[in-house]
C-alpha cells in the first residue's frame, strides 16, 4: 500500500485490479446497501427487463473504483476526496471487470496539493462500465 504520495506526477497510472463480479458478490452488495431490487437478484424478473438477465448494482462497480482510490491514497481519499462518474454500461454476473486510473493534473489549492485522476472500471470487452474523474488531496 502506498502511503507516501510525494513522488506522484502527471501521467502516473494508479494500480488497478481485476475482480470477477459473481452473483455472490451482487447478493452481498444487496445486503450491504439494502438495495434488493429484483433486477439484481431475481433472474425470472430480470429476464423481462431490457437487459434480459440480472445485472450488478452500478454502485458495486463504483465501489471497486473507490477501493482503488482508498488503496492509492489511504490517508486522504476519505478525508477530502471527490469523484464524479457516469455509468455507461451494465455489468453482468460472471464478468471480470478491471479498475483503472491515471493522474492528469496536480494543482495547488489553498496551499494543498490536489491530484486529479481519470478513473473507471472496464468490462471484459474494454468498454467502460463506470468512468469519470476524482480529485484527492495529497497527504
Amino acid at each position: 500500500m502506498t502511503t507516501n504520495n510525494s513522488h506522484r506526477k502527471v501521467g502516473d497510472a494508479l494500480t488497478g485490479f481485476e475482480r470477477q463480479i459473481t452473483q455472490d458478490r451482487v447478493d452481498a452488495y444487496a445486503e450491504a446497501s439494502g438495495d434488493h431490487n429484483p433486477i439484481h437478484l431475481n433472474e425470472e424478473y430480470a429476464s423481462t427487463t431490457q437487459f434480459g438477465t440480472r445485472i450488478a448494482h452500478g454502485m458495486l462497480s463504483l465501489a471497486l473504483v473507490t477501493e482503488m482510490l482508498a488503496s492509492e491514497f489511504p490517508n486522504s481519499w476519505h478525508d477530502g476526496g471527490k469523484l464524479k462518474v457516469r455509468f455507461s454500461a451494465p455489468v453482468f454476473p460472471g464478468e471480470i471487470v478491471t479498475t483503472y486510473g491515471d493522474i492528469t493534473a496536480i494543482n495547488e489549492e489553498d496551499g494543498q496539493l490536489i491530484v486529479t485522476c481519470t478513473i473507471g472500471c472496464k468490462k471484459p470487452d474494454g468498454t467502460d462500465a463506470v468512468a469519470g474523474r476524482a480529485t484527492v488531496p495529497l497527504e
Binding site: 476519505h78 478525508d79 455509468f87
Partner: peptide, 9 residues
C-alpha cells in the same frame, strides 16, 4: 443510474 458525484470530508 446514470451518474454519481461524491465528496467526503
Amino acid at each position: 443510474h446514470a451518474g454519481q458525484e461524491v465528496s467526503w470530508a
